[in-house]
Write a protein that binds this DNA or RNA. Structure first.
Ligand SMILES: NC(=O)c1ccc[n+]([C@@H]2O[C@H](COP(=O)([O-])OP(=O)(O)OC[C@H]3O[C@@H](n4cnc5c(N)ncnc54)[C@H](O)[C@@H]3O)[C@@H](O)[C@H]2O)c1
Ligand SMILES: NC(=O)c1ccc[n+]([C@@H]2O[C@H](COP(=O)([O-])OP(=O)(O)OC[C@H]3O[C@@H](n4cnc5c(N)ncnc54)[C@H](O)[C@@H]3O)[C@@H](O)[C@H]2O)c1
Lengths: 210, 210
DNA sequence: GAGAAGTCGTGATTATTTTCACAATTAGTA
DNA sequence: TACTAATTGTGAAAATAATCACGACTTCTC
């Protein structure tokens, strides 16, 4: 594998940079400075330069960065050329919203299939994505290595267990349950209720102008 | 305001602790150790003890923490007794999912109203929450200080501007646009495409067992 | 082609967060 | 009561991340 000396904080910002560079190219801009990037993505310009510098000297002093070059570099770095297949679990409120969304645009990931326990949903399609019965997980999933969980919290553990059994590598978990997985599986939690509550806490307890 | 010596990283974990303590109480448990909490919320036990210690000595050595006491303490700390009113902008795929979700359970926030530009949606209700026309923002919003943005990215700047004008204090932004606000407004970005892409990046570039 | 303005890359510093590790204290037990 | 096992709270260390600040180089302008 690549450089894993790259700080995690940096790695999390890369997709953000990538998307903005894409926008710039569509706008026909050929050159950009860390200051301009900073204004757009709201990350300190020194942090941006530092982030980029982990990958070598990508810019030119006194000039900035060449959009096309940088974009090409990140395309390779972020493996934009190969599509990562994703499976979604739980076609409810949240799951349905994701199925309608086109993650492929500006992104190397595609939801290939969805699973649900509700017989009324099984067999239908949303946005061209087939919905299978959760019982058929093992049969249908095959090579998919990334899962999105939008099932009820109570179901999280049992579905996770089956995913792990099936060789899953990464899980994006929208369930409030904190799932348990072996060390070789990576889980990112996105806990919307917590996010909202944390925002409210910050509003009430942190001074009103940082 | 309160202690703003509390690290931001700690503050973000508080709602998580709160929710789990609630579960414990419902299960009738009266006592819990940092180790048990750690297993449940997947945060190192030393980190949990450190987090709690910012609020004083909440536990007892050799015993652990009293669930009811701790819960009562966090209820006050997290202002669970007063309801924070929230407005949602953009009743599309994502916005509709949120309107169906009951944030009030385990949470002190409630979506009171929604706004959209689509005349077919205006005037209807989802989950008992009225949908107003975006043109009526100033008239209807009044005292609401927290907003959730689930509108198209292209609309983010103009709606944000009006929210700021109207005295908004916090924004939970699901739009890929990085919005610009004055220093006294707090914005939390939740960028789902970035999260997914970051997960994939980690899978490919970080050693498979941390 | 000389001077001015702009911008990177990075050493050094500072800030923040996590983790270690253990004395102090408590509950439980015999 | 005395002993054992459990568990906190925290000083200190380590790890991670953000920021400052400036030399080096590039482009632009005249
Ligand atoms: N909707 C929101 O705004 C929101 C906000 C915060 C958190 N969440 C969390 O996201 C998750 C999904 O929320 P939602 O509102 O979409 O719920 P939902 O009830 O609308 O959808 C859940 C879906 O999962 C399906 N399901 C149930 N058991 C299953 C199983 N074993 N295998 C596969 N599918 C199964 C159900 O049939 C249903 O379609 C929940 O855990 C919820 O707590 C949702
Ligand atoms: N759906 C997803 O899974 C997903 C994933 C990642 C990011 N997002 C982002 O979340 C946002 C919403 O996504 P979505 O899929 O719900 O989009 P959507 O198009 O389904 O919904 C957008 C809604 O906003 C309304 N709207 C448009 N202009 C408005 C205005 N000026 N004021 C108020 N309402 C207005 C539209 O009528 C529509 O109902 C987008 O910015 C999208 O990029 C969505």
């Amino acid at each position: 594998m690549d450089q894993n000396k790259i700080p995690q904080a940096t790695a999390k910002r890369l997709p953000l940079y990538y998307r903005f560079l894409n926008n710039l190219q569509h706008q026909g801009k050929s050159r950009v400075s860390s200051k301009e990037l900073s204004d757009a993505v709201k990350v300190d310009s020194a942090t941006i330069r530092r982030d980029f510098s982990y990958f070598g000297a990508l810019g030119k002093k006194g000039y900035g960065y060449n959009v096309e070059y940088l974009l090409g570099f990140f395309r390779k770095t972020l493996d934009q050329d190969e599509l990562t297949e994703v499976a979604l679990f739980g076609v409810g409120n949240l799951g349905t919203a994701f199925l309608h969304y086109n993650f492929v645009k500006n992104n190397n990931t595609k939801i290939m299939m969805a699973f649900d326990a509700d017989p009324d949903k099984v067999g239908t399609e949303i946005g061209g994505i087939p919905i299978y019965h959760i019982d058929d997980l093992e049969e249908k999933m095959k090579d998919v290595k990334v899962a999105i969980l939008t099932i009820p919290a109570s179901e999280a553990d049992s579905v996770t267990e089956r995913l792990v059994e099936q060789g899953i590598e990464g899980i994006l978990n929208f369930t409030p349950a904190r799932i348990t997985v072996p060390d070789h599986v990576r889980v990112h939690h996105i806990d919307l209720a917590v996010e909202l509550q944390a925002l409210v806490y910050f509003l009430k307890h942190y001074p009103l102008d940082k």
